[in-house]
């Protein structure tokens, strides 16, 4: 609360610490207790996150699954998976989802890489306002524009087409893709490009032969990140696609299970496991590299 303390904490602290530099860290029974408490509290929060999730996994393998988290035990069976792994329940929606998300992620990455290059390499007076606009669109609540987008799609005759939906999904992930790609591109040193430039290479050639080979790791992070976001998206295909045979997994899970009175919970869980598995695997692939994406610090520099 008191302004004085908060304004110069670093300076005050450093000055004072010089006087007490001899005092070592307190290491004793108290620290042990504190560490114990920290671990218990952290583990308890983790448990609270884990327990609801266990239902999906246990129920999927339980022939008589209900809504409780129950170890399948003697009811263990793969019947739920057998029941849902049919073309119309699982394979087609998964395929549709794959077409939508791979298509949209691919467009987003190509377009974002092209856009990131001038934003990362050149200085113009329009750059900062442009980047700020991109940053703002990152937070745009897409849900809010779905009604006008529906209207637009009706006008353009794009309703219930995979192509239109792919283009729109690509656009919704463009701002964050441009933003992340630019940040990764900033990390590629310019010195190599300068050599290529002096030799007369065009900027597109430089991008293709010098920059891209150096930033595959970053690009794969952006691609996977985009794909995961799109794979889970429910509202966009829910609004823009109508025919049951075009619906992706995110929507069909709802139409297959959400509308009937007596839901087969085990089958719903089994389907959820199948639908969730791809994003879990992809996340494991990139988890080590994603850390850098969450710092806002260097967002608008340069």
């Amino acid at each position: 609360m008191s302004g004085q303390t908060t304004t110069v904490p670093g300076a005050a602290v450093t000055r004072l610490s010089k006087q007490v530099v001899a005092t070592a860290h307190p290491r004793g029974p108290r620290t042990w207790v504190a560490t114990g408490v920290v671990n218990v509290v952290t583990a308890a929060i983790g448990l609270a996150f884990l327990v609801p999730m266990l239902w999906v996994v246990f129920a999927a393998f339980n022939a008589r699954a209900g809504l409780k988290v129950e170890w399948p035990g003697s009811n263990f069976s793969l019947d739920n998976f057998r029941a849902v792994m049919t073309p119309e329940t699982t394979y087609r929606p998964m395929w549709n989802g794959l077409v939508l998300c791979v298509g949209a992620a691919a467009i987003a990455i190509v377009v974002a890489t092209l856009a990131a290059y001038p934003l990362s390499r050149f200085q113009t007076r329009y750059k900062r306002p442009f980047l700020l606009t991109i940053l703002f669109s990152t937070g745009l609540p897409i849900t809010a524009i779905m009604v006008p987008v529906y209207g637009l799609f009706v006008q353009l005759n794009l309703i219930d087409t995979l192509g239109g939906t792919i283009a729109f999904m690509a656009t919704t992930s463009l701002p964050i893709s441009i933003f992340l790609t630019k940040n990764f591109m900033d990390g590629v040193p310019i010195s190599l490009e300068e050599a290529a430039w002096t030799d007369g290479a065009s900027s597109m050639q430089t991008l293709r032969y010098v920059v891209l080979p150096l930033m595959w790791p970053g690009l794969s992070v952006v691609t996977i990140f985009t794909f995961i976001g799109l794979w889970g998206n429910f509202f966009i295909p829910f609004v823009l696609l109508l025919s049951p045979d075009r619906l992706p997994a995110s929507v069909s899970i709802f139409t297959f299970f959400g509308q009937y009175g007596s839901v087969q919970w085990g089958q719903l869980a089994a389907y959820s496991v199948l639908y969730t598995l791809p994003v879990i695997l992809l996340y494991l692939l990139l988890s080590r590299r994603l850390g850098g994406a969450f710092t806002f610090g260097g967002a608008l520099k340069g």
Binding site: G46, F49, W231, G232, I280
Partner: peptide, 11 residues
């Protein structure tokens, strides 16, 4: 656990 809850699709 926490990230798992975040990665799974919203439905």
């Amino acid at each position: 656990a926490v990230i798992g809850a975040w990665v799974i699709p919203e439905v």
